[in-house]
């Protein structure tokens, strides 16, 4: 058991190393990459793999692809709160700014039990209408996130019904040029149909509980072409009757160029598995091709 755990950790380290190398490669060589959007406007990568903020999927599709381009991106994020830590790495592809597909691997460290929970998420998003910057009305997209929990024992012990499920969401985003004292203002509102407990890391559903529509929202101000500051909110279900709290964060994102972004945030995840007041930090790096 210890051996396999050790192996998994080594594998994860290896993956992080590969991704970090890829990102460095992108930064240091002049790879001709998709560049058809304004700097910073695609946003970053949320913890379930979709383009978005840190915790909310946005209507924007990942990367800088415009209607004539294809882009790829990869990212790793770490969230560290008092008794838990989430490591996630993923990849995204954007086809002609119409379809986004994504894949993310999550590893969730439960410090009090000295164990890791693992989940894979396959996502797809379709832009239905508009352009974040250029259209009169907000950009609208719909998406799914199909989640497979690989370590279901704890989830079932806590009362979850399923170890695999699919979230559906509809997202709308708009960037208002010069809206706040000349600074660009971005907002996103998403509605998610879900029964995932702590994103799915504690399984799906609970006794007598059904899927429900939950609200997620983000807002940011771009202080320059390169720096965005903002905050997010994500409503959560409480299917396991453990007092699962809504999530919040306040973030700063840095976009030095169209090849890389770095995001840092302060996060408040509330109660996780009945352990209260889980606050801490989030750090994420995305590389774009």
């Amino acid at each position: 058991m210890n051996l396999s755990n050790g192996c998994n950790k080594e594998m994860l380290k290896l993956k992080h190393l590969i991704l970090a190398s890829l990102i460095l490669l992108v930064v240091h060589t002049n790879v001709r990459s998709a560049d058809g959007k304004l700097l910073a406007t695609p946003g970053v990568s949320q913890v379930e793999g979709s383009a978005g903020g840190g915790i909310v999927p946005w209507a924007q599709l990942a990367g800088y692809a415009s209607r004539e381009q294809i882009s790829g991106s990869g990212y790793c994020s770490k969230v560290s709160v008092d008794d838990f830590a989430l490591n996630v790495c993923g990849v995204q592809a954007n086809f002609f700014d119409r379809v986004e597909v994504s894949y993310a691997k999550q590893s969730f460290e439960v410090k009090p039990l000295n164990t890791d929970l693992k989940q894979d998420i396959v996502g797809a998003k379709v832009r239905l209408y508009g352009d974040l910057v250029y259209s009169k009305w907000p950009q609208i997209s719909v998406g799914i996130q199909h989640k497979s929990l690989k370590t279901e024992t704890i989830a079932f012990a806590l009362g979850a019904n399923k170890k695999s499920d699919t979230d559906f969401y509809i997202a709308s985003s708009k960037l208002h040029l010069g809206a706040v004292a000349g600074y660009n203002w971005l907002w996103n509102v998403s509605l998610r149909h879900t029964q995932a407990n702590q994103m799915g890391l504690l399984g799906f559903g609970g006794e007598g509980k059904n899927k429900q529509w939950l609200l997620e929202a983000s807002t940011a101000v771009l202080m320059s072409r390169h720096i965005a500051i903002g905050m997010e909110f994500r409503e959560k279900p409480d299917n396991l009757n453990l007092g699962e709290d809504h999530w919040r964060d306040v973030f700063v994102a840095w976009f030095p160029n169209k090849s890389v972004s770095v995001t840092a945030a302060w996060v408040d995840l509330g109660s996780i598995a009945a352990i209260n007041d889980q606050t801490g930090w989030y750090l994420s790096v995305t590389g774009y091709l």
Binding site: Y134, L177, A179, G182, Y183
Partner: peptide, 18 residues
Amino acid sequence: VPHSVQNQLLAKLVPLRK
């Protein structure tokens, strides 16, 4: 040109893209 002034000019031009 200051960042905020740039954005205001862009805001005037953006509706023309269509």
